[in-house]
Design a protein around this nucleic acid. Structure first.
Lengths: 116, 116
DNA sequence: TGACTTGTTCTATTGAAACTAGAACAATAG
DNA sequence: CTATTGTTCTAGTTTCAATAGAACAAGTCA
């Protein structure tokens, strides 16, 4: 699994990390039952703080995407399959938004508004 | 046009305001050529700072949704029509996400990832 | 023309949140 | 039992949203 972090981005690091893992879970990069790297290890390889990684893990736990247990680490659940069912609908939005020349931030704002 | 602001929300006020106006532009609440309230007036009625309103206006200007001119105020452009073309696709995402029991924040995160 | 309206720009302060850092702790694995 | 790994706590730094006040510039309109 390839995880990338952009230190210069304005979006929070823990958010980037969570999104990255989420994406991997959906595309099959990580499969249910698979174990994510230990927070301390991942923090070191990404050159961020342990707390930042743990926060990302906890976010994914709140979403039901991973289970966290001391001594065992973070394990991916089978809930990722549900997320992948949304992919087609989301891809349609992305394609149309690009065709219309609408900026990414604007598209997410429109979605947030529609979700309220 | 009805604009609401939730002071207790974690999302920035200028963001809420921009989304609210954007929504109004899409649903036809405000039409192209129509003029938005003067920043000073809107700030007073919403009980927020003038700068907060102006920041929302400037965000919408960057999106091409309004034009700002001194002495004239903020005028809605006809670009709003483009945005409405996305509505159907976005609605589909919202419906599916709700059916799958996926949290709003998660859905927006998935979209952001797909837009990268 | 001249007064008024309205956005633009500037400086400054406050409060919240992200990130980093270090340490002690608790549950699980092997 | 020992090592691993997440949990919790305190704390300091930085960034950004929001507020506030003031001066300024470009347009409106009588």
């Amino acid at each position: 699994m390839l995880l990338r972090i952009d230190q210069s981005s304005t979006t929070p690091l823990f958010d980037q990390l969570a999104s990255s893992i989420r994406g991997a879970a959906i595309t099959g990069g990580v499969k249910p039952g698979e174990r994510l790297p230990a927070a301390r290890d991942l923090a070191e390889s990404l050159e961020v703080n342990v707390h930042t990684v743990l926060r990302a893990y906890q976010l994914l736990r709140d979403e039901g995407l991973v289970e966290l247990r001391r001594g065992r680490g973070a394990v991916v659940t089978d809930r990722a399959e549900r997320y992948s069912q949304l992919s087609a609908a989301i891809d349609t939005v992305v394609v149309e938004a690009r065709a219309l020349g609408i900026a990414p931030d604007t598209v997410t704002a429109l979605l947030r508004e529609a979700l309220k």
